[in-house]
C-alpha cells in the first residue's frame, strides 16, 4: 500500500520557547482517513497546516506524495505539493468577489491552465456532487455556512487532489448545518479519498476514520483505531478529554 503522508519527528517552537509541535511522527496510507483530535491549543491545526507548507517547522522531515520538505522552506517543492493536495478551512475562506463557479475554476484555469469550458464543466459536476449546482452563479455571501463549506470542498477537489486536508471544517457552522457537510465528507471517504481531518465530531470520527491521533501540548499522546480510542483509550489524558467532550 502506498504511503501518502510520512511525518518524521517534526518540532516547531514559537519565539517564547513554547513548543507548538513536539517530535510528531505519523503515517497515512492511501485511501485512509486520519482524524486528529485534541483540546484547543494542542497543535493539531499547526500540524495539519505543515502538510501543505502553510506553516513551517524547525526540525524533522515530512514526505507528502513522495515530495520531501524539511525546515528549509523550499518554495518549488511546496508549490508541487499544493497542486496535489486540497485543503478545507474552518472559516471556508471562499473568495467573496468571485461567483461560486469562479471560485472553483480559479485554480484549474490559472494553475493547471485548463480551458474554461473544461474547467467549468468539471466545476459544475463537482457542484452537482455537493448538491449545490443551483447556486453556481451566486456569490459566497448569499449562501448559508453549510453551503459555503460544501463549495470550499468542491473548490479543493477542483484540482483532482490525491489528499484532502480538513482543518475543523464544521466548527464554524450552525449545529443543524453540520451534517450536510459531514455527509459530503463521508461520501468522499467511501470513494477512497485519502483524508486528514481535524475535528471534534465524535460520531464522524467513529464512523469514518481508520485511525485517531490524539494530541496535547504539541505531543502525540496516542494513535489508535477508533474502536479502541473511544471505548478503551490507552492514556489517562485521552480519557479525560473524551469525558469532557461527552458533557
Amino acid at each position: 500500500m502506498n504511503t501518502i503522508i510520512k511525518v518524521k519527528n517534526i518540532s516547531k517552537s514559537y519565539s517564547k520557547g513554547l513548543l507548538a509541535l513536539d517530535k510528531v511522527s505519523l503515517k497515512v496510507n492511501q485511501g485512509k482517513v486520519l482524524v486528529i483530535m485534541g483540546p484547543s491549543g494542542s497543535g493539531k491545526s499547526t500540524l495539519i497546516r505543515t502538510f501543505n507548507g502553510l506553516e513551517t517547522f524547525d526540525t524533522g522531515e515530512i514526505d507528502i506524495l513522495g515530495i520531501k520538505i524539511n525546515s528549509n522552506y523550499n518554495e518549488r517543492r511546496i508549490q508541487k505539493i499544493r497542486k496535489r493536495v486540497g485543503m478545507v478551512f474552518q472559516q471556508f475562506n471562499l473568495f467573496p468577489h468571485l461567483s461560486i463557479l469562479d471560485n472553483i475554476t480559479l485554480a484549474p484555469l490559472n494553475v493547471q491552465k485548463r480551458s474554461r469550458v473544461d474547467a467549468e464543466e468539471f466545476g459544475m459536476y463537482l457542484l452537482q456532487k455537493m448538491g449545490i449546482s443551483m447556486h453556481a452563479e451566486k456569490y459566497p455571501s448569499q449562501l448559508s455556512g453549510g453551503e459555503q463549506q460544501r463549495v470550499a470542498i468542491a473548490r479543493a477537489l477542483a484540482l483532482k487532489p490525491e489528499l484532502l486536508l480538513f482543518d475543523e471544517p464544521t466548527s464554524a457552522l450552525d449545529p443543524e448545518r453540520i451534517n450536510e457537510v459531514l455527509d459530503v465528507m463521508r461520501k468522499l471517504a467511501q470513494e477512497g479519498m485519502t483524508m486528514v481531518v481535524v475535528t471534534h465530531e465524535i460520531n464522524f470520527a467513529k464512523d469514518v476514520s481508520d485511525q485517531i491521533l490524539f494530541m496535547d501540548s504539541g505531543k502525540v499522546i496516542e494513535t489508535s483505531t477508533p474502536d479502541i480510542f473511544f471505548s478503551n483509550a490507552k492514556h489517562e489524558r485521552s480519557r479525560k478529554f473524551l469525558n469532557q467532550l461527552d458533557k
Partner: peptide
C-alpha cells in the same frame, strides 16, 4: 484583506503573483 484569503489561494497552488492579482487586489 483577511489572512484566510492568502492561505486559501496558496493552498490551491496559485503563485504569489497570481493570488495577489486575482484574489487580494480585487478585495
Amino acid at each position: 484583506v483577511p489572512k484566510g484569503q492568502w492561505e486559501s489561494f496558496r493552498s490551491l497552488g496559485l503563485s504569489e503573483r497570481n493570488g495577489l492579482l486575482r484574489v487580494i487586489m480585487p478585495q
